[in-house]
Nucleic acid binder design. Structure first.
Lengths: 241, 241
DNA sequence: AAACTCTACTTGTCTAGACAAGCTGAGTCA
DNA sequence: TGACTCAGCTTGTCTAGACAAGTAGAGTTT
């Protein structure tokens, strides 16, 4: 048996109420859609103030476990929309965290006139210039990702002066425009001829491709195509309700 | 100009404070890691009670925009761990939402002795029985997913009696064990011979594969391998800070 | 029967004050 | 110098009460 030096911390009252509700939701005491106890009832049951109960329930609400309707009541959430979340991380820190070495080789880094396709994706006008980089990232010397990226010069005028063997574009762009929204598309397909060559794989090897487009404060920042050899890379994630 | 019938609802004070902090975080007023105003300062600035300010900041904390240390202060979050979230949805509702038709064909539905690999994944003992289903899902008559699933009989004893042309296994299992945790792995690779045949694709066509393992209240429920033709399917998601 | 009103109940939010818990730095003592 | 104490700051949480806003249902009127 494990004994702790610290005395057993008694959990905060709001946490007690929250845990009680969570447990009973899990074991089906309140079927999905069913009416749950009102705040007043819980106040009486646990002898705490309404604010305390309210916090417990509100947190369950943001976790998606219950839904509330003002004037009506609190309901167990409908059969959880089977949606779940997966984490996509910065490749550099991911590799470092595995205790492996990361290095990058820059193949293209220049300003270009936008093509129609890129102009659309970045929300720029025809005839504008964009920065374009193609960088291959290696884990322990093995090519793991081919990163084909277009950047809006208005957001990162010094982008091409960055040493991308030291800093990943993602890291740099995060400094320039800290909080952003991103849209993703993840797909599997064969690489282009150039990508196959850069990654050292065959043209018919399956690749995991992430197409990412990021926007900060309604200004498009960057659009990237990240190609990973299917045999060397997979995305892992988990979901806790 | 657009005129609304309803009078402009004034936002709640806590929302005002929250929005103020969020705006200034985005435009870089507080660099990542920097000390932000204390609750007391915000109380004075906005003439609200501390509970109101506290709620605003606490919500920012759960959103990952700030981090707080008791006794020290509130800090702008570090260069957002470039992690981001992607939503994985139930195939049936996803197809329905596109206004398309979904149907499923059951190829295998039986009880089996576990193999070592499956026993490990499901956390069962050697010699136990599992339910095994192989189902192909179609969108508008085109095969979109091959679902190879093992289910822990202890969690869903009636699993094999379900009509999977009407209900997806995911939907059914959600009813039986409402709230669960899931682990995912997403990868790209070629299909097995059987999968290629069932999906009507070539053996060297790239596939997007989701391996999912779910657990509810520390009891393993199910392990599934979902194979999608790369040309017909992609995962989309977005991230808002 | 249909339309209305009113009451009772729900959630949503705010307040002013309180105490606990934790960190920091200044001052004190050995 | 080094170890200690303590005041003063921070966040973490709870309370008792209050009013607003929204809904459902009972009762009333038309």
């Amino acid at each position: 048996m494990v004994t702790k030096n610290k005395p057993a911390r008694i959990p905060a009252p709001y946490a007690v109420v929250k845990q009680y509700l969570k447990k009973n939701l899990q074991n089906g005491r309140w079927a999905p859609g069913a009416l749950m106890p009102s705040e007043a009832e819980l106040v009486a049951q646990f002898s705490v103030s309404r604010m305390t109960v309210n916090r417990a329930i509100r947190e369950l609400q943001t976790e998606g476990l219950v839904s509330r309707i003002q004037g009506v009541g609190t309901f167990a959430a409908e059969p959880h929309r089977v949606s779940s979340t997966l984490t996509i991380r910065d490749l550099h820190s991911e590799i470092e965290e595995r205790g492996h070495t990361h290095h990058a080789v820059v193949h293209i880094a220049k300003a270009e006139l936008v093509t129609t396709a890129v102009a659309l994706r970045l929300g720029l006008e025809k005839g504008a210039t964009v920065f374009h980089t193609v960088i291959v990232h290696y884990e322990n010397g093995v090519p793991l990702q081919c990163e084909d990226r277009y950047v809006n010069p208005a957001c990162a005028p010094d982008y091409l002066r960055v040493d991308f063997t030291q800093t990943t574009p993602t890291q740099y762009l995060l400094e320039v425009a800290p909080h952003w929204e991103a849209q993703y598309r993840i797909e599997a397909s064969a690489p282009t001829a150039r990508e196959a060559k850069l990654l050292g794989i065959r043209r018919d090897d399956a690749c995991l491709i992430i197409a990412r487009r990021t926007v900060s404060m309604n200004v498009p920042i960057t659009a990237a195509r990240l190609v990973h050899p299917g045999t060397r890379y997979s995305l892992a994630g988990q979901f806790k309700p």
